[in-house]
Nucleic acid binder design. Structure first.
Length: 477
RNA sequence: GGCGCGUUAGUCUAGUGGUCAGGACGCCGCCCUCUCAAGGCGGAAUCACGGGUUCGAGUCCCGUACGCGCUACCA
């Protein structure tokens, strides 16, 4: 099995490209096939010069890799369409000599006018075939006048079709189709043509892509046929949409894989989520799958044909699940860049301490970039919650209570369990309700009514900083 | 407009002629609890519509509606 992903070099990997690449990768690994990277850069106007790195980076982040491509080389190099022009010309020449294609001298303006006329008279706009049977002398004259022709494929009518791996039989009548351009006047092949030449020469067995390419398959089928080439298998995946059902675009949320990495989504979660957007393992209640598990389960037949909305809420849930599943030490390392970015960590940190801290925030994060918020009390001094504590301790001697806490903490063994035992005993001795006492402590320790578990938090904050925070409050109360 | 694809709760989906239409996210409620989370339990919510075929249709066929795609010398 040989499968290719053919992104345009836009500088970033689109999530749609990511999902298709993921499906390709799963299929290829499952079948022991080869995954190929090909850069479709025939749209000169749109190309950012060699901006492939961003695309590679996004896919690599997901954990995907290929064995042939511009960056890897391979038996069918080059893997960039802009470097394969001679190939396209060779087969265009073949099509021309066999009579399957012909030169068309119509200008873009003439075609535009023709189309306008047809639309006005309510005809379906399609090429009239004006240059279809030009005489040799006419062609010579046009060439002599300096006109540069395009190459058009001669379309003969009839019903054609293919068996889509996810949708079944798809057919159309080509009598509705005009002769279409395969090589532009600037010598660059059109997508539909270049794709066919490349897929054939690169021995692609399964052509996989998004549903918007379904109708492109028809002209491609015609090209395969005209060249006398066998057709590969085709699989068209569902389209991914925004929450308002519009096509996934940058306007309405993140579109590129790199953006999700920056927001603190885990590649494990992203892969899991993307896999389930348009595919399902069938009868199973299991929601979490690793890349390896997906390799085992994936199949084209279980891909859904209908469009799928990219539901960030579900992604968030999955991400939170994956965060909780990570070993704390692993999570700590992943969280660190986000803490640095937020300015909470500037120099080296003690990884043991960071890991301990991470266990406290692990269940309180949806994304990695939640860490700076949730964990700030372990790095920065909170604003003293003087007023809240006063309100909490209304009617009792607050200063004395805080002092008792300080005294207790000053001598206790510094470990969560011991801190808890000591403080619970103090609570009993003071005769305060658990709610009041521990909320007061939480306010004192963290400056907030919401925080990670109290005793462990106190431990992680450390004796010195705890006593300092208490001292500050005692003098302010 | 033409052609193509699609349509199970708000969302992702299971279902391949006979099920109380299953699961998950989200939402609501309860429990647990030092707060917040997490976790547990429970709840509301779905087969787009109309015709067929059949003893029986979410499942098969036709039509309609709606959505998406293509209709370029874009990919």
């Amino acid at each position: 099995m040989r499968v290719r992903i053919a992104p345009s070099p836009t500088g970033d990997a689109h999530v749609g490209t990511g999902r298709t690449a993921l499906y390709d990768y799963l299929f290829v690994r499952q079948t022991g096939g080869t995954f190929i990277m090909r850069i479709d850069d025939t749209d000169l106007a749109r190309n950012t010069a060699h901006a492939e790195a961003g695309v590679y980076q996004g896919l690599h982040w997901l954990g995907l890799d290929w064995t042939e491509g511009p960056d890897k080389g391979g038996p069918h190099a080059p893997y960039r369409q802009s470097e394969r022009l001679p190939l396209y010309h060779r087969y265009a020449e073949q099509l021309l000599t066999t009579g399957h294609a012909y030169h068309c001298f119509c200008t873009a303006e003439e075609l535009e006018a023709e189309r306008a006329l047809q639309t006005a008279s309510k005809e379906d706009p399609r090429y009239s075939g004006k240059c279809r049977d030009l005489s040799a002398s006419a062609k010579e004259a046009l060439t002599a006048s300096g006109k540069i022709p395009t190459v058009r494929l001669r379309v003969k009518g009839g019903v054609i079709g293919f068996n889509d791996l996810v949708r079944g039989r798809i057919e159309t009548d080509t009598s509705l189709m005009g002769d279409f351009i395969i090589v532009k006047s600037n010598g660059i092949p059109v997508y539909n043509y270049a794709t066919v030449v490349d897929d054939y020469l690169m021995e692609i067995t399964h052509v996989t892509r998004a549903a918007e390419h379904i109708v492109n398959t028809f002209p491609q089928l015609l090209i395969y046929d005209s060249l006398g080439w066998p057709t590969p298998h085709f699989a068209h995946f569902s389209t991914m949409l925004n929450e308002d059902k519009s096509k996934l675009s940058k306007r309405k949320g993140a579109t590129y894989i790199g953006q999700y990495a920056e927001m603190g989504y885990l590649p494990e979660a992203m892969v899991n989520f993307l896999a389930f957007l348009g595919w399902s393992p069938g009868q199973s209640d299991e929601e979490m799958y690793t890349l390896d598990e997906l390799v085992e389960k994936f199949s084209f037949a279980r891909c859904t044909p209908s469009n799928a909305i990219f539901d960030v809420k579900k992604l968030d849930w999955l991400n939170a699940k994956w965060i909780r599943r990570l070993a704390p030490a692993d999570l700590a390392v992943r969280v660190l860049p986000f803490l640095r970015k937020a300015g909470l960590v500037e120099n080296e940190v003690d990884l043991g301490w960071l890991t301990r801290m991470t266990t406290l925030i692990q269940e309180r994060m949806v994304r990695l970039d939640d860490a700076p918020t949730v964990a700030s009390i372990f790095f920065r001094e909170p604003t003293p919650a003087v007023e809240e504590i006063r309100a909490m301790l209304a009617g009792v001697d607050g200063k004395a209570i805080l002092a008792a806490v300080a005294t207790t903490l000053a001598s206790v063994t510094w470990a969560e369990a011991d801190i808890e035992t000591a403080l619970r005993k103090l609570q009993a001795d003071l005769g305060l309700s658990t709610k009041i006492f521990f909320m007061t402590l939480r306010l004192a320790a963290t400056g907030s009514k919401v925080s990670p578990p109290l005793f462990a938090s106190i431990e992680v904050i450390g004796r010195e900083r705890m006593l300092k925070r208490l001292a500050g409050l005692i003098s302010a109360t």
